[in-house]
Simulated scan of single mutants.
Amino acid sequence: MIYTQCNLSLISGIFCPPDAIKGDIGACGWVILILSALFTAITFPLTIWFCVKIINEYERAVVFRLGRITSGKPKGPGIIFILPCTDTFLKVDLRVISFAIPPQEILTKDSVTTTVDGVVYYKIYNAIKSVANVNNVHVATAQLSQTTLRNILGTQTLSSILSNREEIAHNIQSILDNATHDWGVNVERVEMRDVRLPVQMQRAMAAEAEAVREARAKIVSAEGEMNASRALKEASMVMCESPAALQLRYLQTLATIATENNSTIIFPIPIDMLQGLQKK
């Protein structure tokens, strides 16, 4: 009898602290709670395996007693004690969770159809809110991420999506973080992984880029020819002032050809000799 009373006082002190239950559970609830504590005390060596639970370091347990959350904060990590007949608990993982947003077909502001997917990283910072305020916090966060991605990218043009991906991802992360705050979720990072365009749009953009490159190449070639013609004009003026410079240029050209390819070199007849023969 003394052993039973000691066990009963111990168990009532562990499982029924003054601030353990918020709200009134009613007379029937107290009767069920007392009977459960008595049953646990009488069968203490056996029920200890049902009362003791181990919570990992990265987990928290939200304990429900007769349908009510037992305290204002979750329990764990370590060993927790529950009543086998009246208490139930849910484990909540506090680690960072990542999921891929399925490819979303989006019509941009400039009427271009594109497919965008991404990755969201989030974690639960309040286990009680994640259990009590939403049915399935992971499914709700995933669905909200899909709709937010579609809504944000629908107001952007294709060029802004391709050039401002980091800024758009930061805006999506801010919207998701504000929306999931009441769920006990903190969205830490959002990344746009891939932006896929239709094949026809890819061909049109490739043709446009090729045309721009060709136009730039023609402009560069024209500028080079203009600069070369100016240089040749200045060189011709110098050679006109000194006829021997033309002969030196001949010799320099022949030396250049000889270093590249082995060939027979024919020296041109100087123009001065031809002028002398013509006079005779």
Score class of each variant (00 low, 15 high):
Ala235Arg: 10
Gln202His: 00
Thr47Lys: 09
Phe89Asn: 00
Asn227Pro: 01
Leu251Asn: 07
Leu83Arg: 01
Val199Cys: 08
Ser130Lys: 01
Ile82Lys: 02
Ala100Lys: 13
Arg203Asp: 05
Asn151Glu: 15
Leu277Arg: 11
Gln202Tyr: 09
Ile80Thr: 04
Lys91Asn: 11
Met226Pro: 04
Val190Leu: 05
Leu46Asn: 01
Pro45Asn: 04
His181Phe: 15
Trp30Ile: 11
Thr256Gln: 13
Ala255Asp: 14
Phe50Lys: 08
Glu241Leu: 14
Asp194Val: 08
Glu260Ile: 15
Trp30Gly: 06
Ile172Ser: 06
Leu251Cys: 09
Leu35Tyr: 06
Gly78Val: 12
Pro77Thr: 04
Met201Lys: 04
Glu260Cys: 09
Pro103Phe: 08
Glu167Cys: 01
Thr47Leu: 14
Pro45Gly: 03
Pro17Ser: 12
Thr147Ile: 13
Ser159Lys: 09
Ile219Cys: 12
His138Pro: 02
Leu107Arg: 06
Lys22His: 12
Arg150Phe: 15
Arg230Tyr: 13
Glu191Tyr: 05
Ala255Arg: 04
Cys16Arg: 08
Leu176Trp: 01
Asp110Trp: 04
Met273Pro: 00
Thr253Phe: 11
Glu167Ser: 09
Thr253Lys: 13
Met1Asp: 09
Thr113Arg: 12
Asn261Gln: 15
Thr40Asp: 13
Ala140Ile: 07
Pro270Arg: 14
Ala245Val: 12
Val116Pro: 07
Asn171Ala: 07
Ser9Thr: 13
Thr147Ala: 12
